[in-house]
Design a protein around this nucleic acid. Structure first.
Lengths: 211, 211
DNA sequence: CGATACACTGACCGGACGTTCAGCGCGGTG
DNA sequence: CACCGCGCTGAACGTCCGGTCAGTGTATCG
């Protein structure tokens, strides 16, 4: 069945509102972003938002899911086919830096939801909907690490902790890049991360003596 | 001059209120922590808080500074005297994990202030007071890294980026530890971080072939 | 023991924000 | 053209919260 005119309008509204929400949240922060301002940013009246989302929580939740779905698609694409661990690691990091670079505004929403706020009921709800998304991201990377360990490419360590360390560490670099006027080329930061994580930063004894 | 009785009472109130603030913020999150609840937690009336802090912002700011001052003291202590880079890195990481383990409740306050919220005026104020504290932490570690690079113990990389990567990566592990019922011993996680950062995770060709 | 000072209290105020809903205008229909 | 349906609007409502201040209890002093 072709999309009816109503569907098209509806989709357009939903998308405008979600994009506005991301922009306002990235400007003011999660707590200070008001429905009024989101509505203005989207070019609709406050009441209109409630025709498409039950309440503020649902708007935030759906918006987050839509946006993070995009990130997951990118990561999946980066991991298609198989290569050496190093290639895959580089692909993942490149995809990540690229995504946040193109979606700078999504970053703050992402960061705000890392740790749930509000009453314990709200916290539980946020946890149910957002935590799995973070977990999925961590688990995906942990899976790659585990695979590489089994293949003998990586020494045995707790894959989950390593994944956390890597994701959050690279997130810090993304954050820094976003606040810089002229960040270095993406590849440079990817190389920093990949080479550090693969080979470490210490100059081995043999190399030092040969120098 | 000895402390007058008023000073003692005053200090006690300030401390109670700050501790209450940390507990409430860690329970509800920054935005949802109300002055009323902080007052109840401290066992005083709401108005009393305003005898010791100009407004909510000042309370949060001062509380944050008091608590992070403690962290900085620990880090300084960990770096007293001099040792190899590896020893210093291990000391810093141990101090960090230890601090957050003993001050679990401070963690959320710390996390909430990472990224300023509210109107742009509020954001500027928060940036002026809190960002330098984060910067100081990063710069301190970056300094150690730089020193090790100059000494030829560490290969030359951007020290600031490395420091960010390390601090945020280890923060992720702290966060994970805090949410676990029975986290592994601190030393284990410290070793994971230190060995990863020093030697990387890849199994070198020579080691693999000798296996 | 009264008088004075002052830390403390908590009801109250003003404003902001999420949510609602009566009504408006516009495109479609007979 | 008159009527209708409906997507949309934004004023109004209830709630919540930071901040205020007149009043209260208590310690101190003459």
């Amino acid at each position: 069945m072709a999309k009816s005119k109503e569907d098209v309008v509806s989709e357009f509204r939903v998308q405008s509102i979600q994009e506005a929400a991301i922009r306002v949240i990235s400007r003011k922060g999660m707590a200070a972003a008001t429905m009024q301002e989101i509505a203005e940013e989207a070019g609709v009246a406050k009441g209109t938002i409630y025709l498409y989302f039950r309440d503020r929580e649902e708007l935030v939740e759906k918006t987050f899911e839509t946006a993070i779905g995009e990130l997951h698609k990118r990561l999946d694409a980066a991991l298609e086919g198989d290569g050496t661990f190093e290639e895959r690691l580089r692909a993942v990091m490149t995809a990540q830096l690229g995504f946040f670079n193109e979606n700078r505004e999504f970053f703050r929403l992402y960061h705000s939801l890392r740790m749930p706020e509000g009453t314990s009921a709200q916290q539980r709800r946020q946890k149910r909907t957002c935590q799995p998304q973070f977990r999925a991201r961590v688990d995906r990377l942990a899976g790659i690490l585990k695979q590489a360990m089994d293949a003998g490419e990586v020494r045995p360590l707790d894959p989950k902790r390593l994944a956390l360390f890597l994701i959050e560490g690279s997130t810090a670099i993304v954050l820094e890049r976003l606040s810089e006027d002229a960040p270095p080329p993406e590849t440079e930061d990817v190389e920093l991360i990949v080479s550090t994580i693969l080979a470490g930063i210490a100059i081995s004894k043999s190399k030092r003596s040969s120098h």
